[in-house]
């Protein structure tokens, strides 16, 4: 099946097209965040009109204090632009907590499925995987009313609990096959050495499962970091907004300053993109094992 030079050339060209498609929005967000809107509006045909400027980032990082040349004459700056630190902190706290909680809850349940042979847990979690095919808006409306009654609206906990519940069922798709691949003998010899079942889980199963835990954890973190609808519906007060909610709040703003928004988008997408590129192997394994949502 050796390829002719022409076939190879065509395949290179196809790769070039795909790479171009992948990188088009990435270059748009980078270039856009480094330009001034008046230069963009002044020349609608050049690819990079005007000089590169870091003023978009400067105004965000200084919470609107330092306007720089670009925003010198701007009389209005959307309020949420100034809250970017808050949003960043909220996003980090929520995604990290959700990642840890789902890892703990899911590995506990996966262990009982594999080593204690609890069929009903496997059944229950599979049913819940299917329940997740239901569009999320179906669940968010009742969840809003329930959380309202419980006083969980406008809090970090509400979002953390909701995301944990939604992402938990996927755990069995990734963790159960991996736990099952660990030889039973290791578990049994630990038990002979005096471990209880639970300490055997902590000292044998978990340490040996780091690749699966990394896959699942990375995917959960990315989904939690990127999620919009859950914090958008549960939290409407500015101090509880996550980065995606802040971005969504700017969409409706009458004075859309695209370059400022591109800078915020770049800040929001950098952590998850870096994570994916660093943990590429684990994310690929998790996604193909789990068939998790895209």
């Amino acid at each position: 099946m050796r390829k002719t030079p022409l076939q190879k050339l065509l395949l290179h060209f196809a790769n070039l097209l795909v790479i171009g498609f992948i990188l088009l929005p990435m270059s748009a967000v980078v270039i856009g965040s480094l330009l001034a809107e008046k230069n963009l509006a002044g020349d609608t045909r050049a690819i990079i009109p005007g000089d590169i400027t870091f003023d978009n980032f400067r105004v965000i990082i200084s919470r609107g204090e330092q306007r720089g040349q670009v925003f010198e004459q701007a009389t209005y700056l959307p309020d949420n632009v100034k809250k970017i630190y808050h949003a960043l902190a909220n996003s980090v706290v929520i995604s990290v907590s959700v990642t840890f909680l789902t890892l703990i809850f899911a590995s506990l349940s996966a262990y009982t499925i594999v080593k204690l042979g609890l069929r009903w847990v496997a059944w229950l979690l599979s049913v819940n995987v299917f329940a997740r095919f239901v569009p999320i808006i179906v669940l968010m409306i009742p969840l809003y009313v329930v959380f309202r009654k419980m006083g969980l609206l406008n809090s970090m906990w509400g979002v953390i609990i909701a995301l944990t519940g939604f992402l938990l069922p996927y755990g069995i798709l990734i963790l159960v096959p991996y736990f099952a691949s660990i030889p039973r003998e290791l578990d049994e010899s630990a038990r002979i050495d005096g471990c209880t079942r639970f300490t055997a889980f902590l000292r044998i199963t978990l340490p040996l499962s780091t690749p699966a835990l990394a896959s699942y954890g990375a995917i959960v973190f990315i989904i939690a970091w990127n999620d919009l609808l859950i914090p958008l519906i549960l939290n409407n007060r500015a101090e509880f907004m996550t980065l995606p909610v802040v971005i969504a709040s700017l969409v409706g703003d009458v004075f859309v300053v695209f370059n400022l928004m591109m800078a915020i988008c770049l800040i929001a997408l950098t952590p998850s993109v870096l994570l994916v590129l660093l943990l590429r192997k684990f994310v690929v394994e998790g996604l193909t094992a789990g068939g998790v949502k895209g």
């Binding site: 990188l23 748009a28 990315i222 998850s272 994916v276 994310v283 690929v284």
Partner: peptide, 23 residues
């Protein structure tokens, strides 16, 4: 391509939408 292929998966959907709206 294989190295870059996962990149879009990591981009927050709302940021993705906004970037394209700019495009």
């Amino acid at each position: 391509t294989r190295f870059l292929i996962l990149l879009p998966y990591a981009v927050p959907p709302i940021a993705n939408g906004l970037i394209w709206s700019f495009i």
